[in-house]
Write a protein that binds this DNA or RNA. Structure first.
Length: 469
RNA sequence: UCCCCAAUAGCUCAGUCGGUAGAGCGGGUGACUGUUAAUCACCAUGUCCCUGGUUCGAGUCCGGGUUGGGGAGCCA
């Protein structure tokens, strides 16, 4: 029995380690947050969690503790440090438990703590995004998110891809991929004017700047020097999008390969996506199992199917024919030249193919200026990866590497070649066929967890009207 | 931005025909030698989203607004 104030020299164990490697009879020091307290007349049980795993550790406190009354009165949310001996649990529910020899209340929590030991709605938890992290679901979400981010880097590192940090502040609006957030140090109350318009030549960068909507253009330049590269960073879109799949700030993964065509691009996307599915199943098993039971009953089955599938590849033209023959009525029209709607994408991947499918070579009119023009004069070498339940999850293309074709296309689509002269330089000297794609990281996490709202897979979501926390 | 739906206790919700508000959970107190989101007993808790209107009387009906959710578009 330890005296009050005396702590053993034991090093702190994370609960994940204590639960998997701890031996009955061994001394243990753990620190974490109280999830629930159950008190009896002569015994008190504390469910403790420190974020290292979904499972917590049951701490058993008995009246021989000097501060037994204080321990019995602990509230949900309190931070404590516990020393004691691990022992086999006599009751069902856990193999090991910690018989407390000393409990230090590090940070108390009174009854006003908003998280209760009951189920809360995700809507309510979003209003306490700073505390929801201590719940089972969000603990699992952010462990999976962290593990997948590390696996993304591992995947590309193994293949010799260079990781490049492209700029966050940019002066070009890329492909016109979205509305730009303005970055300025001008006095918004009285900005300098020139002929009635704001004079950005007096701004910090001597030009109008904003937050990046894509690192692709800079990524292409790096591919023309390092062959295979990828970016993985924050991306910003000032669109007034109010959906479960859009955020104003999100993280995007964008690989780019020189000396590569559309098939190479699809090959990379396929092995990349399958690898991430396998990783989630094999390395986040406890959390994925939780999602499968609590959030989305078919989750594991769906991920396993994708991880072992051979992805189908279908021409855009064939997709249109299949949709026209479909024995269902769509809300939106199906016609060669029109873009595929969500309902069409879902039908193709769920009903026609029954698994992941690449749609290849879209009409040039509905795609960006930088995509490579095919010999038919009508289509460009674009690809979208569609997966069941979600629809489009990856979008990519082979890039137009021929200077004359590229500048012609820019002029047709109203992009000033002069403003992207540095980009065009990559086509002037040593140009190569090259290709790449973009994967929205949050959408990947949604896919792998079954969570249905992007606001619930990003720590502190930024959406229209929301930038608190 | 467009369409639809919703807003009542800390949370999740019920509230009939318009007649001055309820349950479960959570919280507090007590009981209980081992619980598993413990159990049992008792106790407390309301800007019925805001605003204008109809009415003797509005949580309830009508108009306007705010916020949230679902769907669509934009896309990742």
């Amino acid at each position: 029995m330890l005296q009050e104030g005396e702590f053993p020299m034991t090093a702190r164990s994370k609960l994940k380690q204590a639960l998997s490697e701890g031996k009955p009879g061994s001394e243990c020091l753990v620190k974490g947050w109280v999830r629930s307290v159950r008190t009896g007349k002569g015994v008190c049980f504390i469910q403790l969690n420190d974020g290292s795993s979904l499972a917590g550790l049951q701490v058993v406190a008995e009246p021989d503790l000097v501060n037994f009354a204080e321990v019995c009165g602990l509230g949900t949310g309190a931070a404590i440090a516990v020393t004691g001996l691990l022992q086999e649990s006599p009751a069902a529910g856990q193999a090991l438990e910690l018989r407390a020899a000393q409990v230090e209340v590090v940070g108390g929590a009174d009854e006003s703590y908003p998280m209760q030991k009951k189920r809360h709605s995700f809507e309510f938890l979003r209003t306490i995004a700073h505390l929801r992290l201590r719940s089972n679901t969000f603990g699992a979400v952010f462990r999976v998110r962290s593990s997948l981010a590390q696996e993304v880097h591992r995947f590309f590192a193994e293949r010799g891809f260079l990781y490049v940090h492209t700029p966050i502040i940019t002066a070009n609006d890329c492909e016109g991929a979205g509305e730009l957030f303005r970055v300025t140090t001008l006095d918004l109350a009285k900005p300098p004017l020139l002929n009635g318009a704001v004079d950005f030549s007096q701004d910090f960068f001597s030009r109008a700047t904003g937050l990046t909507v894509s690192g692709q253009l800079e990524g292409e330049l790096f591919a023309q020097a390092f062959s295979d590269i990828y970016t993985f960073g924050p991306t910003f879109r000032a669109e007034n999008s109010n959906t479960a799949r859009h955020a104003a700030e999100f993280w995007m993964i964008e690989p780019e390969m020189a000396f590569a065509d559309l098939n190479d691009d699809a090959d990379l996307a396929e092995s990349f996506f399958k690898r991430l599915c396998s990783h989630a199943l094999n390395n986040c098993a406890e959390d994925i199992q939780f999602f499968n039971t609590q959030i989305d009953k078919g989750l594991i089955e769906r991920i396993e199917a994708v991880a072992s599938a051979s992805f189908a590849r279908m021409e855009y033209g064939e997709a249109i024919e299949r949709l026209k023959k479909a024995p269902v009525s769509f809300q939106f029209p199906v016609e060669w030249g029109l873009d595929l709607q969500s309902e069409h994408e879902r039908y193709l991947t769920e009903q026609v193919v029954g698994g992941p499918v690449f749609i290849l070579n879209y009409p040039k009119e509905i795609k960006a200026f930088y995509m490579r023009q095919n010999d038919d004069g009508k289509t460009v070498a674009a690809m979208d990866l569609l997966v069941p339940k979600v629809g489009e999850i990856i979008g990519g293309s082979q890039r137009e590497e021929r200077l004359d074709r590229l500048t012609a296309r820019m002029q047709e689509t109203g992009v000033d070649p002069e403003s992207l002269s540095w980009y065009l330089d990559s086509r002037r000297w040593g140009t190569t066929p090259h290709a790449g794609f973009g994967l929205g990281f949050e959408r990947l996490i949604m896919y792998l967890t079954g969570m249905e709202n992007i606001r619930d897979v990003i720590p502190f979501p930024r959406t229209p009207r929301h930038a608190e926390f």
